[in-house]
Design a protein around this nucleic acid. Structure first.
Lengths: 194, 194
DNA sequence: AAGCATTTCAAACGCTAGTTTGAATCGGTG
DNA sequence: CACCGATTCAAACTAGCGTTTGAAATGCTT
């Protein structure tokens, strides 16, 4: 379906509310009524896009037998790349972050699946990095890590403002620096707690 | 001006786009044309609200002679409280975070002022906590800290989902736990780097 | 090829939200 | 009190958006 393909990136870029059906059908080169015909209404299309995003966003599972440091770094790099890079699948993450700000009904029913897929992996990494952590503290560390991975690249706007010239560096370099920093920061934190 | 007082919280809660002029004038108990008369148009009002928010958001400057650990904790607590608490001035922060997601033209011209007010203070804390850090690393740590303070409380939605029952605890307890964790996490990270 | 369900289309409908308008009201000044 | 600029108000205007509609086109089955 042509509509589904173009709708994802548009929703991700402009937001659910700001995106108009006319935007989408124009990009898809189809008639305006097509959305209502195939997806009932705008929300129906959005829910479908969101479902698609969560299902295709399952990253290539990295080697689970690598040392925890390496797995953490992979995790960080994936997140950072998705937000700073300009890849095809970047819109998945952007859409998720929008939802996090202001969850839509369609999202609420999907978040459990996302949590269930990511959290165990992160928990395992944190547990290996610091076996002395209690259960609640490990849980908090997982969220620290994830919020860090998503929040910092997203706030690139502020980065640029507090250090002019940052935005002019090559994307690949920005990704490397930020991945590097977040990994080291979180490794130091998790390893140093308790 | 009655309008300015009520507009801030409404914009913060519903977002710039979703907030209607009718929402605001109804809450203010004034006629609809008042917004256009006094602020030219909706964007004019929004810009004014934003300006007001950045100017009144200057927190009570905490004791600058306290040890760096204490100052960091104060900083964290202020952020967390603003996002998890239900205080009067919480809307300032919420509005800022919305802008961070999707900066409006009005915001861009104000962000330098915000950065200029917060960053030096954070830089000083980080520098005292770990004098061995290089300049760029210190800068990154500052943003780690701030993104952490804002991102984690904002993602409470995920917290709740990965640990049901979290949301039912008293607000004061959630604030304490999160402040505690973020402070310790960042202290361990900053102190342990290099 | 005829018939039928499915899909596409241009056009219009209804609603909502920002803005404009022109009259009414207010508040100070000569 | 009369005047006049500033402000308030109810009402209408305008534009954009989601949705509906009914006809046209398409494609599959017999």
């Amino acid at each position: 379906m042509r509509i589904l393909e173009v709708a994802g990136p548009i929703f991700a870029e402009k937001g659910r509310r700001e995106t108009t059906i006319r935007d989408i059908v124009q990009a898809a080169g189809v008639n305006q009524a097509a959305v209502n015909y195939h997806f009932r209404d705008k929300d129906g299309l959005y829910a479908e896009v969101l479902r698609l995003a969560t299902h295709t966003a399952r990253e290539q599972e990295p080697a689970e037998d690598a040392p925890a440091e390496q797995r953490l770094r992979d995790l960080v790099r994936t997140s950072v790349e998705r937000l700073l890079g300009h890849q095809r699948q970047a819109w998945h993450t952007r859409l998720m972050l929008r939802e996090l700000e202001e969850p839509s009904p369609a999202f609420v029913s999907l978040v459990d699946e996302i949590v269930g897929r990511i959290m165990p992996r992160v928990e395992r990494i944190v547990a290996e990095l610091n076996p002395r952590l209690g259960e609640e503290e490990r849980w908090l560390c997982c969220h620290s890590l994830m919020s860090h991975c998503n929040g910092m690249p997203k706030a690139e706007f502020f980065l640029e403002r507090s250090r002019p010239g940052w935005g002019e560096r090559a994307a690949e370099e920005r990704i490397r620096i930020m991945t590097d920093h977040i990994s080291r920061f979180c490794l130091a934190a998790i390893g140093g707690l308790e």
